[in-house]
Design a protein around this nucleic acid. Structure first.
Lengths: 119, 119
DNA sequence: ACTACATTTAACCATCTGGTTAAATATTAA
DNA sequence: TTAATATTTAACCAGATGGTTAAATGTAGT
């Protein structure tokens, strides 16, 4: 029984798994935005966008500040960094396997060449 | 109407959003494994693990080779790299904001100092 | 006080998810 | 051929997800 859970990672990856939410983050990467502005380019209702924002907020990817009746959303960095670091940990393994693949392809290529141009 | 969808990214992030699946990947990072071996440390039924593996396979994070009745699973690199790169694109934005935060904190500290030790 | 605006909440719906158990399918070994 | 093993498929279930519309809330402006 191996323990490999992190609610934070769960939430972060799940939040990033939806194209609407990724789009919202991309918009926010160009500066803070309010809910209505964020909703405009997404052909869906305001409540739908509101829900997506709450998911991003719960994942910690976004922070909200109320200025009167408008809510200003700001991109938040830390959780994505954790997600990236999780992926990074596998880097040497897949780099290893990519090297192996590269080597394999070179061998294949060499074989093909000797096949195409036999002495 | 902004287009920001990638089914591949959807599948990759969704696959990574589950702790059981992340655990399976971690086990696979130490070498190829068959379904039964992968299932052992996870207190859940074999069909459950089988489903998780199919999700990883469909996301392209894992490749399957049948040797007789045992299926050997292998970690696959590329999709994770795409996910990592997606996150990377935000790096300068959050690095920017982290820098700004850092600067802000330094200013705050400086202010406090001059307050504690006025000439 | 009234109206308009920004946003959320509520109620609902279809589909997806993550698990179960029981049965089916392949392959190996006796 | 028969029995055991590795894995998947099928049928089912509870709860989450992603959307809708209608109503409620809170704030701003006149």
């Amino acid at each position: 029984m191996v323990k490999c859970s992190s609610n934070q990672l769960d939430r972060t990856f799940a939040a990033l798994a939806d194209p609407t939410r990724r789009s919202l983050l991309e918009h926010l990467s160009h500066g803070d935005r309010c809910v209505t502005d964020l909703a405009k380019p997404h052909s869906m209702s305001l409540p739908a966008v509101s829900k997506h924002l709450r998911i991003l907020e719960k994942a910690g990817l976004v922070r909200r500040k109320r200025h009167g009746r408008v809510h200003s959303l700001k991109l938040e960095a830390a959780p994505m960094q954790e997600a990236k670091q999780w992926i990074e940990e596998y880097r040497r393994f897949w780099e290893g396997s990519l090297d192996r693949l590269d080597e394999y392809l070179k061998q294949l290529q060499a074989k093909d060449k000797s096949h195409d141009h036999p002495h």
